[in-house]
């Protein structure tokens, strides 16, 4: 099959790396993220001042209602938002890196659909299942979806090419999604599923952080370790092989990291779209093609976008929550359109 990749058409300006801008993004981004997290803890149905937030974290008082709200509801929610945002953005960056396809996103790799398939079964047949178990099984579903994709890509004749990986992801995803919708429509739980597809952080508890923190933490660290190999792989399979890289290992590790990060993120926060697709593009437009910079910057930008969108989700129409996946798109789309036109692509 002919594979003339869109990537080849990237202009020189996008191939270059811009470390200074990247460092600026990392520093400013971290400061903004800290402010956003504080704001996220402070803003809500009952307004809590910044000093109170400070006290609640560093001098917790068990008798104070405000301290308890912060401790039990707001803090885990804000931290979950940051971790989920970072995980999705880094997953997307890695996928676009190893498939060399600008349309690649965590949601097309069978991961989100694997989790959706588990959930459709749980909602239909075991509706009383505890939250922690639901989380666990959707993570397992996400993992099985990914293994299926990677397995099919690997045993395919002609080897694991980027196109094969993307196509296998789409095919497995379509299959799992159709089965999930079939089960959901037949058992009348389709609207529950669509709440899950919309994603959200309302259910975040310390329990979700217990799953998220170790898995995402390890995943993000591994992503940084793998960054250099992905930069090389992104130049093309032949170039990478010529430079002595074992491309199959890089791809396998990349998919493993994506599975950990996306699996953990979707099992606590549902299918929050957009971040995993668009933050990697935005990051790449800004800092260039070196994944040593793309990965940390994408993590910061993803975390920042999701924390901000979550604040918006609570403020726009209280006491109802606006779907956070929709807000990330509303905030991000204009910026992305601007960059796509400016990028000279």
């Amino acid at each position: 099959m002919e594979n003339i990749n869109a990537e080849n058409k990237r202009t020189r300006s996008q191939r270059e790396s811009r470390p200074i801008l990247a460092i600026v993004i990392l520093v400013v981004g971290n400061v903004l993220l800290a402010i956003a997290l504080a704001a996220s803890v402070s803003i809500g149905a009952s307004e809590i001042g910044f000093t109170m937030v400070w006290d609640a974290i560093f001098a917790f008082d068990t008798d104070s209602t405000a301290h308890q709200i912060i401790e039990e509801v707001r803090l885990p929610r804000a931290l979950t938002g940051a971790l989920v945002g970072a995980s999705l953005a880094v997953s997307g960056s890695i996928l676009q890196g190893i498939t060399r396809n600008p349309l690649a996103a965590p949601s097309i790799m069978g991961i989100t659909d694997g989790a959706a398939f588990s959930l459709a079964i749980i909602y239909s047949f075991i509706p009383t299942m505890a939250y922690s178990q639901i989380m666990f099984w959707s993570f397992i579903g996400a993992g099985l979806g990914t293994i299926l994709v990677f397995g099919i890509g690997s045993i395919a004749k002609g080897g694991l090419t980027p196109v094969k990986l993307a196509l296998a992801g789409i095919a497995v995803g379509a299959l799992l999604r159709s089965l999930a919708s079939g089960i959901a429509i037949y058992n009348d739980v389709a609207q529950n599923m669509s709440f899950w597809y919309a994603g959200g952080l309302a259910g975040s508890k310390w329990l979700s952080l217990q799953l998220l923190l170790p898995i995402s933490g390890i995943g993000l660290l591994l992503a940084l370790v793998l960054a250099h190999s992905i930069t090389v792989l992104n130049l093309g399979d032949d170039v990478a092989k010529g430079l002595g890289q074992r491309t199959f290992v890089t791809k396998g590790l990349g998919v493993l990291i994506v599975m950990m990060l996306t699996g953990a993120a979707v099992s606590v926060a549902g299918a929050i779209g957009f971040i995993g697709l668009v933050i990697p593009h935005i990051t790449r437009f800004l800092v260039g093609a070196d994944y040593k910079w793309i990965i940390p910057c994408a993590a910061i930008l993803g975390a920042l976008l999701l924390v901000l969108a979550d604040i918006g989700a609570r403020m726009i129409n209280p006491p109802f929550e606006t779907p956070v996946g929709a807000l990330t798109a509303v905030i991000g789309v204009p910026f992305f359109l601007y960059l796509a036109r400016k990028g000279g692509a």
Binding site: A6, K9, R10, P102, L103, S194, F195, Y197, A198, G273, F274, L277, V278, H281, T322, P323, G325, A326, L327, T328, A329, V330, G332, V333, F336, L337, A340, R341, G343, A345
Partner: peptide
């Protein structure tokens, strides 16, 4: 922008689709 480049078409398609899908979710729920 002086013509339609394939890459830009794909990127803009992603952006507009994401935006429309966001609205779709809001109304659907």
């Amino acid at each position: 922008k002086d013509g339609i480049s394939p890459v830009r078409l794909v990127l803009v398609g992603i952006a507009v689709n994401s935006g429309i899908n966001a609205l779709l979710i809001i109304f659907q729920l």
